[in-house]
Amino acid sequence: MADALELVRSSLDGTICVGLSDGRILTGTFLCLDKQKNVLMRDTKETRLETDQAERHIGLVLVPFQHVKSCHALRMRN
């Protein structure tokens, strides 16, 4: 448990990529997880892979845990 917590802490302010249940992918700066395991991100971009891979900037976003299918750290903070 301590290793998982340390991994989350080291990812704070780093870039993460979150795959959603509807096929969208969100890429942005990881701010925090709340008690319900929702993910808060800033400077977020949304990519839709099923359609035309269009990308749009959506800014600050709270991703409900039930919609998260995958989560990857792309760049950890220093």
Results as ranks from 00 to 15, higher is better:
residue 1 M to I: 07
residue 1 M to S: 01
residue 1 M to K: 14
residue 2 A to T: 08
residue 4 A to I: 14
residue 6 E to M: 14
residue 6 E to T: 04
residue 7 L to R: 10
residue 7 L to M: 12
residue 7 L to E: 13
residue 8 V to Y: 05
residue 9 R to N: 10
residue 10 S to H: 09
residue 11 S to D: 01
residue 12 L to A: 04
residue 13 D to K: 07
residue 13 D to V: 04
residue 13 D to T: 01
residue 14 G to Y: 12
residue 14 G to N: 10
residue 16 I to M: 01
residue 16 I to P: 00
residue 16 I to K: 01
residue 17 C to K: 14
residue 18 V to G: 03
residue 19 G to D: 04
residue 20 L to A: 14
residue 21 S to D: 15
residue 21 S to N: 09
residue 21 S to R: 15
residue 22 D to Q: 11
residue 22 D to R: 15
residue 23 G to I: 13
residue 23 G to H: 05
residue 23 G to Q: 11
residue 24 R to S: 11
residue 24 R to Y: 15
residue 24 R to L: 13
residue 25 I to D: 00
residue 25 I to L: 10
residue 26 L to H: 05
residue 27 T to G: 02
residue 28 G to L: 02
residue 29 T to F: 04
residue 30 F to P: 00
residue 30 F to R: 00
residue 31 L to D: 05
residue 31 L to F: 00
residue 33 L to R: 10
residue 33 L to E: 06
residue 33 L to N: 02
residue 34 D to V: 03
residue 34 D to Y: 09
residue 34 D to E: 09
residue 35 K to F: 07
residue 35 K to H: 15
residue 36 Q to T: 08
residue 38 N to W: 03
residue 38 N to Y: 07
residue 39 V to S: 02
residue 39 V to H: 00
residue 43 D to P: 02
residue 43 D to Y: 01
residue 44 T to L: 07
residue 44 T to K: 07
residue 44 T to F: 05
residue 44 T to M: 13
residue 45 K to C: 05
residue 46 E to P: 06
residue 46 E to S: 08
residue 46 E to Y: 03
residue 47 T to A: 07
residue 47 T to E: 03
residue 48 R to V: 05
residue 48 R to F: 06
residue 49 L to E: 08
residue 50 E to S: 14
residue 50 E to W: 15
residue 50 E to R: 05
residue 51 T to A: 15
residue 51 T to G: 03
residue 53 Q to I: 14
residue 53 Q to C: 09
residue 53 Q to S: 09
residue 54 A to E: 13
residue 54 A to C: 08
residue 55 E to L: 05
residue 55 E to P: 04
residue 56 R to Q: 14
residue 56 R to S: 14
residue 56 R to V: 12
residue 57 H to A: 14
residue 57 H to F: 15
residue 58 I to W: 06
residue 58 I to V: 13
residue 58 I to F: 06
residue 58 I to S: 08
residue 58 I to L: 11
residue 58 I to Q: 08
residue 59 G to H: 08
residue 59 G to M: 12
residue 59 G to K: 15
residue 61 V to Y: 06
residue 61 V to M: 02
residue 61 V to F: 08
residue 61 V to R: 08
residue 61 V to L: 11
residue 62 L to Q: 13
residue 63 V to W: 11
residue 63 V to N: 02
residue 63 V to E: 04
residue 64 P to F: 00
residue 65 F to Y: 15
residue 65 F to E: 14
residue 66 Q to S: 14
residue 67 H to Q: 09
residue 67 H to T: 02
residue 67 H to E: 13
residue 67 H to N: 11
residue 68 V to W: 06
residue 68 V to I: 07
residue 70 S to Q: 13
residue 70 S to A: 04
residue 70 S to V: 11
residue 71 C to D: 00
residue 72 H to T: 14
residue 72 H to E: 01
residue 74 L to Q: 11
residue 74 L to G: 09
residue 74 L to Y: 02
residue 74 L to A: 03
residue 75 R to Q: 09
residue 75 R to F: 03
residue 75 R to T: 02
residue 75 R to I: 02
residue 76 M to N: 01
residue 76 M to I: 05
residue 76 M to H: 03
